[in-house]
Design a protein around this nucleic acid. Sequence first.
RNA 1: GGCCCCAUAGUCUAGCGGUUAGGACGUUGCCCUCUCACGGCAGUAACACGGGUUCGAAUCCCGUUGGGGCUGCCA
Length: 488
Amino acid sequence: MDTIKTRFAPSPTGYLHIGGARTALFNYVYAKHNGGKFVLRIEDTDFERSEKIFEEDIIESLRWMSIISDEEILHQSERLNIYNSYVEKLLKEGRAYYCFCSKDLLEEDRNKLTAENKKPMYVGRCRELKPGEEMLKTPHVIRFKVERGTGSATFFKDLIRNQIISIENKEIDDFVIVREDGIPTYNFAVVIDDALSGITHVLRGDDHVSNTPKQIMLYNALGFKVPEFAHVSMILGSDGKRLSKRHGATSVIQYKKEGFLPEALVNYLIRLGWSHGNDEILSLDEIIKFFDLKNISKSAAIFNTEKLLWLNSHYIKSKDPFALISLINDISEDSQARLNEDVKTAALVDSLKSRSKTLVELRQKLDFFLNKTVEYNAGVINEFNFNQNDAAFLQVFKDFIISLDDDIFIDGKNLEGLKVSIESIKNAFNDFLSQNGWTMKEKAMIIRLAFTGEKVSPPIYEMIFSLGKERCTERIEAFLGFLSGIKN
RNA sequence: GGCCCCAUAGUCUAGCGGUUAGGACGUUGCCCUCUCACGGCAGUAACACGGGUUCGAAUCCCGUUGGGGCUGCCA
C-alpha cells in the first residue's frame, strides 16, 4: 500500500476561515496518524479574486495551528502548461470538446430549463462539432464529454459514511474544464494536481460531494488512479445556517487577535465532528495518536463559541505566567504598552489567568496595574457606605504597607521567590488585621477600591506585591483624597 | 424544482440489537472564599415522527418531516 498522503487545497480568495482550518486539521492529523505526508496547495486559478495577502494569511494561520506542509507549497497558477498537456490528450481522444456557446446563450438555456422545472444543464450543442482552424480563433471553452450510456452511473465510496455514493451520469453536465481565457477550472486542475502529487486520500468539505463524480470521470479518462474520498460535514452558525460573517469571527486570524490560543482552537475544531470516547481535552499529539476516520461525525455541527471559550480558559490556566506575558505581547496592538516580563507582572498574570477566558480579557484586567493612576468613580464607591472609620483604617493600612520588609518586593523572574513573597505579605497582613481585631472580609473591599477603583480585582496580596510600596501608598492617598471630596 | 447527504438534550458528542441512554459546554443550586473567578458537589435537559424486521430497537430497513449541500467559464 502506498504511503498515505493528504492535502489541503484552499483558494486564496479570503482569510482562512474555521471551516477550512478544520478541513486542513483533519487532513493533517489523518496523514500524521498514518505516518504519511500532508501537503498544501494554493488553488489560485481564479485570478479575479485571488490575492497574495490571503495566501499569506492562510499559510500563517495554519502555521499558528502547527499545521505545516511536508513539501513545497504548490501554486496552480504556476502549473498552467502541465494542465494544457492533459487537455490536449483528452481532446485528441475525443473525451473533451470545444464549445463556442456564448455566456448569454447558456444563460438563456438555463432559464428555459429552469422554467420547465428541469435541471439546468448544458444542452450539448457543441458536443459533436468538428471546428476548423478559423473557428478555433473565436472564443471558446473546452468541455468534458460525459459518457451518456443509458443507466450509466459514477460512484465512489465515502470513507466517512462508509457507504457507496452513486450518481447517475445523466445528472452530470458536460462540464467546462478549460475556460475561455485558457485557464483550467477547479474540477480539472484539482484532479491533475492530486494525481500528480500522489494524493491517496482526499478529505474535504461536504460541499464537494457533487463534484466528486466529475473528478472521478476525469481520473479515469486521464488514466490516473482514483484516490479515496472522505467528505467531512460542514460547520454551521448558531442559527444552523452556513457560517458567515454574520456569526461573528470566522477567520482563524481573528480568533488569534481576540486572544485565543492555538491549542484551544485546534482542540475545539477537532472535537467538532470527531470524538475519541469521552475525551474533551486533547493535545495535537494525542489527536494524531487517536485519530480515526471512523469517529468522524456524519452530520453538520453548529459552531459554539461558549465551548471554545471554555477550552481557551482551560489552556490559559495551564500556562506559565511568563509564557502568557509573551503571548499577550505577541497579539497586542501597537498602541498598547508591552507587558514587562518581570515577576511583578507575572504575579498578577498568574492570579488572573483563572479569571480570563481570552488573552485579551486577561490583558484588560491588568489595566489597573499598567495605568499610572486610578480613576475613581463616585457611583461605584457610594455603593459602600464608607465613613470616618474607613478613612482611618486606610491611614493605618498605609503605615502597614510602609512597614513591610523591602526584601519581600523581589525583582527578576523568580516564581519560587514570588511564592515566598506572597506568603510573607499574607502572614504580615493577617497579623496586622488580627492585632486590630479586624477581618479580611470587612477590609478587603475598601483596599480593592483604593488600589483599582473597581469592585473586582486580583487578590489583595498579589496587588500589594505587584504595585509595590510606593504605588500602594500613592493610591491610598489618592483614594483618601477622593473620599473626602465626595463627602463634602 | 432536480440530485446528493444528514438526524441522541440549547450546543458538541458516546452508543454500533438487550444500558437506570454516558461525557462535555451552557444553565441552576450548594460548598469553598478578600471581590470576581478557579475548584468541588448536586441538579437540569435528548434518541424528530410513522411504519416495518426482531423475543427485543437510539441502534437494521422503508417512508414522512426537518436541516444542509450541489445545481458557475468559483473553489
